[in-house]
């Protein structure tokens, strides 16, 4: 379940990065549709956070330590919304670049999460 969500978040994050990167390439700020895309990725990341905590509560333990795992779960959840807020106040192509960068950071976090959870 957690692994499936990790893959889903990583894939959607990369799609979001490509989408916002395209907007930046066309010299456009983030639009409503981009924010819906960010919401989708954020909801998936939230689901991952919840599932991760539930698995910890059931007594399963991540391979590389609990504190690191929780820190990465929270970081993954916060990454895209934080970038989204930055792009709200930067209504130029650079706002789109910021969201694309945020999504790439999220994808990297997911790869690390996969290693940290192990199993």
């Amino acid at each position: 379940m957690l692994d499936a969500l990790t893959v889903a978040v990583a894939v959607t994050a990369l799609a979001l990065a490509a989408w916002c990167g395209h907007a930046a390439y066309r010299d456009q700020p983030t639009k409503d549709w981009h924010f819906i895309g960010m919401a989708v990725v954020s909801v998936l990341a939230l689901a991952q956070l919840v599932v991760g905590v539930v698995q910890l509560a059931r007594g399963e333990r991540p391979e590389q330590g609990m504190a690191v795992f929780i820190a990465y779960l929270i970081g993954s959840f916060a990454a895209v919304p934080a970038a989204g807020f930055l792009s709200l106040t930067e209504r130029t192509r650079w706002g789109s670049v910021t969201v694309a960068a945020g999504a790439v950071v999220l994808a990297v976090l997911e790869v690390r999460l996969y290693d940290i959870w192990g199993n």
């Binding site: 990454a79 934080a82 970038a83 930055l86 930067e90 650079w94 670049v97 910021t98 960068a101 950071v105």
Partner: peptide, 25 residues
């Protein structure tokens, strides 16, 4: 912190959080 600077703010923010949480943990 606007225009291209906004992207820098993002990356520096991320690395502040990453380095701080890493060292604290």
């Amino acid at each position: 912190g606007t225009g291209p600077g906004r992207v820098l703010v993002w990356f520096y923010g991320v690395f502040t959080v990453a380095a701080a949480s890493r060292s604290i943990v």
